[in-house]
Design a protein around this nucleic acid. Sequence first.
DNA 1: CGTAATAGTTCATCCGTACAACTAATGCGG
DNA 2: CCGCATTAGTTGTACGGATGAACTATTACG
Lengths: 389, 389
Amino acid sequence: MTITSTASTAARQHTLRERNLELVARAVFESPSPLSRADVAAATGLARATVSTLVDQLVASRLVQELPAVTGGRAGRPAVPLVPAPRSVVGLGLEVNVDYLGARVLDLTGAVVAEHVEPGAFHDSDPATVLGRLGALASELVRQVADDGMSVAGARLALPGLVDPRAGRLAVAPNLGWSSVEPVPLLGLSLPVEIANEAKLAALAELAGPVPRSFLYVSGDVGIGAAIVLDRALFLGERGWSGEIGHVVVDPAGPRCSCGAYGCLEEYAGKEAILRGAGLGPDAPLGDLLTLLPGDGEAAVRAAGRALGSALADFVNLVDVGTVVLGGLYTDLIPWLRDDVLAVLDERVLASPFVDLEVRPAAAGPHAALTGGAREVLRGVLSDPSAFV
Amino acid sequence: MTITSTASTAARQHTLRERNLELVARAVFESPSPLSRADVAAATGLARATVSTLVDQLVASRLVQELPAVTGGRAGRPAVPLVPAPRSVVGLGLEVNVDYLGARVLDLTGAVVAEHVEPGAFHDSDPATVLGRLGALASELVRQVADDGMSVAGARLALPGLVDPRAGRLAVAPNLGWSSVEPVPLLGLSLPVEIANEAKLAALAELAGPVPRSFLYVSGDVGIGAAIVLDRALFLGERGWSGEIGHVVVDPAGPRCSCGAYGCLEEYAGKEAILRGAGLGPDAPLGDLLTLLPGDGEAAVRAAGRALGSALADFVNLVDVGTVVLGGLYTDLIPWLRDDVLAVLDERVLASPFVDLEVRPAAAGPHAALTGGAREVLRGVLSDPSAFV
DNA sequence: CGTAATAGTTCATCCGTACAACTAATGCGG
DNA sequence: CCGCATTAGTTGTACGGATGAACTATTACG
């Protein structure tokens, strides 16, 4: 996970090459349809000669693949289509959450190459044991894909808590009962591994689909996490702890929260609060709630929607982003949440007369943080392809 | 896998030069003590030969000045100290606010070269008239400094409202009674002028002093504005409307706000709310309040502090920044505000056990937005010195 | 006054991109 | 079937910019 730093360094000749190599790689990877060398030249503004040498390097280092030349309708020598190379360089996403742990391997085309998800109950677990288990599982996966000739560029570990990515430390993960852990050594992997917050990586998984360049991602579960995505990149804040929306004030006269304050968002829109409001037990599966909709559960969900709208309004007022993506348990509740969320947003967001605020469900499938983590590794490869040449 | 990034453009040879020119300029401008060419080479990692040619260009284009060589204690040829050139290239800061309009010219050393501030009452004013007046005043100032051989690089206009800097439009400024204005043409200046929110430019003025790389700036007046500074740069949000903290929820059961919602921060910590709480009229000067402290006014100020703390806690939870700078009328109230703000922050910020949150008064003097605007213009010069060579 | 030390400049060299001319491979019209 | 137009990709020369080494300039110190 990259953290913006202005510390620019002296630019030499090879800096040019690195930058242009990245530029060419991005052009190939971002394009919806395969580009030829000539197309890349036109898209980047580089000379055809330059593009050729750069593309040749990317092909040689197995990041880009040449497809058979397609002899399409028009005159001239047929173009060689360039595409991200499948099953060559891959990224590993890892996650420990309350009720499962898992690993997922993605290749540069975005395809899932291998994965293993294991249900479990890690509510008050031992970090060394759990991370050791995940490490073993991940090693097996890495061995597997390496046997198939792929090389794993790195890994990202998603954790549900306050993560300091720079220090590589998990400050606290209330729902796991973990605090002050350095998880990477406990995995025992011989790969570069970085850690990140679960909601933040899940947000990045959304970038696989059609989504605005900037949005807020809110993931509802037992806790409520959020991530700020700006210009298709995570905004982390000074320490990587941005997006802690779960304890935003909804009503100072509200119920006491486990954090010590009163009327936090989680007391209205957290999983347990919604289930309780619908007359269900705190461990009831989400399906039980959905069967009560519309009907007995509706009031509880709508109350959550209004609370969520209030917290999101603060968020939008402070950060100014026009799209909110709802993930986690909210995804399935969108039909019953959306109107209330939008109504409160319209009422409380100062800029609402000038902007169309949008609330949409998350598009990434289950265990989105695994996908997001793997994608983030590959984004790192793409942003410095010269390291692989 | 489609990953998009900021559309960077092809890098050529002259890109190298531009980047290194900026690097050298920044080294000279940001150093607390004058550097020699050799020092710059050491600081940037560039070769001495390269630095020499780049510095020569900066000197030739009057951005950098050579001081007389100082024959200090140690052996060797004495170094030529390099400093930002005074009174050569200058930036113009402009502002229209409720009770004054003004213009201020800063040179590259940060010194005020010329300024003119005119009190007035622009509560429900006509944009064309007021901006025409400001434009005339600014022209006179520009003529003056041009006669002294300085060249004005550009201007920034600060406005108290929702500004879209990209579109160059002021959406609305409630306290001026303006809405949907394109201010730049109305100034009638033959300079590149950009517009920005007043609090955001005032925040940038803080960068002149010793301040962390990232902080929140909150300016209290009739309305409450805020700005997010990250890595010494403004964070604007998608449309430039970040930092609208004035209408964050403090208590949904609170008094009705002019924005239509209930219990907004401004109803607790806005100028009128504080004055009313202290038993003063809404137009009473700030001095009247200060004479009541400590004493009769204290309860009102402390209530404002708690409300401010609550809103700032949301802010810090969402954005993750460790320092809060209080400007506007809060600057003078800091002694009576600080403890309550910090207490609420400690209570509600999830990361507070792991961070030292700091609340400090603004250091920039009066009309900080004028200074910040002029500085912003000069920052633009600094980030692309090649345009001046 | 000679030597060491530091600042700044000059020059040959290297590297990467651009431009232009080239080769390669196709469609099309006669 | 052949020549021509067209587009893709490659080769070779030129140019701009950074570099390191050698050079000059200017001081302190013994």
